[in-house]
Amino acid sequence: MASTLGLVLSFLIFPGLLFTAVIGLVTQWIDRKVSALVQWRVGPPWYQPFADILKLMGKEIIIPAGARRAGFLFAPMAGLAAVGVVSTMLWLTNMHGTGFVGDLIGVIYLLTIPSLGIILGASASSNPLASIGASREMKLVLAYELPFVIAIFTAVTKVSPMTLRLDGILDYQAANGVLLGNASCILAFIVCILVVQAKLTFPPFDIPEAETELMEGTHIEYSGAALAVIKLQQAMMLFTLPIFLITVFWGGLVLSGWGILYTIVKYVIIIVIIVLIKNTTPRVRIDQAVRFFWGPVTVIAVVGMILAILGF
């Protein structure tokens, strides 16, 4: 009973929903601040994302005429819950080494659910621009999942004995040095950074919510608390995806002594890479994005995989 309560608490408070949301919002501020600095602006104060969420909580929720009410409102919740579960799993694995066979596959599945939630919600909103956004998001998911899975399984191949457990990968890295020290995993890591960019729908892959042509696309019809849920989910993804990459490729989170500092440095490096890519690239078309992911990116991922099988 006590352990059930502990699990529920760890999902709801630390390191699940609440903790992830707070750190995610702080990360979103880093993103906005760095973007502002790149553009020679001052940028918003540190509490800006929190103020946004609070404000949205106090606004009216408009449900468009002709929309499927339940689907429209609950689709974002599914995404939020999925990210919360992923974050809880990653942190518990990193802190206590609690894993189970195949949790890596579970994480890969759960990381797709926010995109599916967005697609469902957009399709339920009966707005033509939202449905264009949803179809683009769908194509984007199809495009990036293949290289993503190949890249993650490069890490799995590299670990000996091969394992699908996150804590197995962490143990191997603790004993033999981080995976990022191998040529194959460097290639896989580059692929993953590009995929993370698409998963977050940041430029150059912000095609589903293209501001200028689709007016925020997939979430054009959301307002008030429902929009707050979407914003929270995006913030939590921004926090969870780098943690996932650190866990798989970069030795995991070390939460004692100097390790804390090292962990934060790793996290910030990944975030800054993501934000710099976001600020220096223009948006591509959806066909270019699909060709990019199925062409060069998949080739890089496969080369990484072959190198890993050859033992590099």
């Binding site: 906005r32 602006r41 918003p44 404000k55 007016m215 054009i220 959301y222």
Partner: peptide
Amino acid sequence: CPKHDVERFGMKLVGSLKHAD
């Protein structure tokens, strides 16, 4: 634009009427 930068006060342009204040 950078000279005035109203994002300092948390203001930003949004694309959809449903997001606007």
